[in-house]
Computed example of a mutant assay.
Amino acid sequence: MDTLLVQAAKATPSPEGRSHSGETNPQDAPTLSLVICTLDEHEAIGGVLRELDQHLGGIRHEIIVVDDSADSRTADAVAAYAADHPQVRLVRRYMASGLSSAAIKGWDVATGHILAIMDGDGQHDPALIRSLLEKLAEPDTDLAVASRYLDDARSGLYGLRHRLSRTGTWLTDVTLGVPLADPLSGCFAMTRDWYAHVRRNLSGLGFKILIDVVASGARKPQAAQIPTLLRARTGGESKLDTRVIIDLMALLIEKRTQGRFTAAALMAGMAASSALCLQWLALGVLLKLAAPLWLAMLLSASVGLAGRFGVLLLTTPRSRRPANAHQLLRQWRGFCLHRWSDVPLNAGFAVALCLAHCPWPIAALAGLLLAESRYHLGGLAGVKA
């Protein structure tokens, strides 16, 4: 993944602002570093930056926009605004996705004493940031969150999105016991000390960065909350899709098990389990139809591989999914190129085991495990599934 830090006006801090250890010199650092993660939000980001300029008057701050858009429209809008506002910085990421990893990238290059985040689509009221700073001024407070559901059950969302949000909040509370009314909030601020405390354990998975920040410490943070409702989006579109839901579930399991089951391992296990179930199903049908054993194994292993590709598509962020049949075919060819060894290894080993009187379900499982080992140990993991 190539990362480009684009200097907007005089945005990049001078080397004198950092000590030899890489830390920001306290007297040169701004009070606030606000990260805004964007994905195709060129219509909204200019208005968000203008509102922030009105509400952050008198506060020494920097705004770091981390853009994952495929085109340059959002970056161009930020650069145009930054030309007259040197406190605005732009980080463009290529072939990367996910709000959590983007937020971490922004905080890693930030220089402020307080680190904050909000959306770039206009749903978060910029006036919230000053209120969050006031909460962090209270003694021993590590984290301040703009929480939906703090005063009532409203969120500013409607229909399915509201129900999914409430379900996600309930699951997080049950799984982790996070002491927040809205652990899925995308608008919050924290002290630099708390970020340093959790940084090494952050997974950077998905879009729910607050869960990562709260659940990655050796202790629970001392948190303050302010009530909020989401406003109407002024640009971009909802990022909610199957990948967001899967990422949330994997993140909750990783944090609940304190990293013993990582999100990456869970995703790989889900893909392998899906492939195995489809292979078993196809193999059972083919053997029932009296297909030759070698042919049944080859075809069923191919079905399992196709199922793995389907899981890969479901777990790919929407912005990077193929937009048409040509792109889909090209991605399928690339996937097969990286997983070329799966079918012959899987089917060949399974057939050999069956000839040695091994039950076919166990033989198919062993074949899949061998192919999986060859894929990872052989250095063919260019495309992860």
Rank of each mutant, 00 (worst) to 15 (best):
A232N: 15
Y375S: 05
D142E: 15
T12Y: 08
G206Y: 08
A264H: 12
V65R: 00
G269L: 06
Q123A: 03
L299D: 00
L377R: 05
I209V: 06
A218E: 09
P221M: 07
D140H: 12
L115D: 01
S373C: 12
T315C: 08
L377N: 03
G379C: 13
D108W: 10
Q54C: 07
E62Y: 05
Q54H: 08
A291N: 00
E16M: 07
A79R: 11
A352L: 15
L115P: 05
G47S: 13
L312V: 01
V35W: 15
W360F: 08
R161F: 03
T172M: 10
E372G: 13
P317N: 00
N25G: 01
L287Q: 04
R200W: 14
A325C: 11
L380H: 11
L56W: 09
F335C: 08
G47I: 08
D53A: 12
V88F: 07
V78I: 12
A223K: 04
H357G: 02
C336A: 08
S97R: 12
R219A: 14
D182T: 09
G168A: 13
A102F: 01
S302Y: 15
T257C: 06
A263L: 05
R148F: 01
S203P: 08
P361F: 11
E41S: 13
T262F: 12
S19Y: 03
H197F: 13
V383A: 11
V178T: 11
D67E: 14
R192T: 07
D140K: 00
R148G: 06
L90W: 04
A224N: 07
E237P: 03
R93H: 09
E51V: 02
A385L: 06
Q87E: 06
G17C: 05
V65W: 01
P344E: 09
R93E: 09
A181V: 00
S14T: 04
E254Q: 14
K105C: 08
A296P: 09
G98C: 04
E16A: 11
R219T: 14
A29H: 07
G122H: 05
F349H: 06
R60W: 00
L345K: 02
A103H: 05
P361D: 09
W280I: 12
D28R: 14
V66C: 09
V303Q: 00
A110W: 03
S319T: 12
K239R: 11
A11G: 15
E372S: 14
T111S: 13
E134P: 01
S147M: 04
T191F: 02
A44V: 01
I117S: 06
G307N: 03
K220Y: 03
I45R: 04
L184M: 14
A306E: 03
G382E: 09
A272N: 07
L164M: 14
W340V: 07
R318F: 09
A75W: 02
L305T: 14
I211V: 15
A356G: 08
E51I: 00
A196R: 13
L276A: 12
A290W: 10
G204C: 08
E16W: 12
W170Y: 10
T262G: 15
I104D: 12
A268P: 06
T12D: 07
S238T: 15
N25W: 06
Q7P: 04
H55I: 00
G46S: 04
P317S: 09
A301I: 07
E43D: 15
V35Y: 13
